[in-house]
Amino acid sequence: MWLDAYSSDVFQAFSSPHLVWIGIIAAVVWLLFVLRHQIRSRDKLRAWLRWLLAAILLASEVCLQCWYIQQQVWDASRTLPLELCSITLLLSSVMLMTRSRLLYQFLFFAGIAGALQAVVTPNLAYDFPHFRFIQFFVAHAAIILASLYMTWVEGCRPTWKSIGLAMLFLNGCALIVWIADLLLDANYMFLRGKPDTPSLLDLLGPYPYYILAEEAVAFMFFSCMLLLFKLLSGKRESASEEITA
């Protein structure tokens, strides 16, 4: 039953399994933050973790595509990796393998924000312990961890310029995906309609106005992320100066 594409176990938002997985992701993020100095100071450990995260990202997408085929539900209009989180997943694996600071400028914002929104309000049909449930949360956790790894271990830093690059990249992706939607009669990135399950898009008005509202929300969210990052970084630097004084 855990692989059945027609399973009757329907996902329920903020159910016990959902909250447990949110807690697991939060705990792993906290652990990465706590151990960041130890990881950074050990070259082999740093490389091992970087490649492990990249492998998890790629494996999660490969396994998902294999599941679609095995269950005979693969459909170009629904199962191609053209959702924002699928795009950021693949780019996150490339970022980790190449340690690309250019990709980081986009993924720190779009990757973390998109995956975080997906974790809190999943567009998901299957409940735990279905394969799709586990794959969904593992993949989105890895997207978040990839950018945090680059920040806390590799020393990358987001800037105000990063927000501009992220917005340009996001709109470029949307344009390409919108063309694909028209050609495939699809609705990737929800550019032709809202998802069937509850999401933050429900608060942004009807189609197509919610797409314009998304632009403003994304810019505000990215700005808040950067301000929070600078605030926390400033506090850590002040604390370090006090200790060494």
Rank of each mutant, 00 (worst) to 15 (best):
R236L: 11
S238P: 00
R78P: 04
A118Y: 01
R132D: 00
H37P: 03
L45C: 13
C85L: 06
T121F: 10
F219V: 15
F11G: 01
S7P: 01
L200N: 11
A239Q: 15
P195Q: 14
R99W: 04
L102F: 14
Y126C: 02
V138Q: 03
S92T: 10
L191A: 04
L184D: 02
L103S: 04
L91M: 11
Q71E: 13
E215M: 12
P195N: 06
S15M: 02
I56N: 04
I24Y: 11
F222H: 09
L145R: 06
V10S: 09
A146E: 02
C173Q: 07
E61G: 04
G114L: 03
K194S: 03
S41I: 06
S15E: 03
L57T: 08
D43A: 14
V119M: 09
D43E: 14
I163L: 01
M1K: 10
G205D: 07
V177L: 02
D181H: 03
I25L: 07
K44S: 15
A54C: 12
W74R: 03
M225L: 14
L175A: 11
V10Q: 05
G234R: 13
L203T: 11
L201Y: 15
F222N: 04
F106E: 00
S93W: 12
I69P: 05
D9M: 07
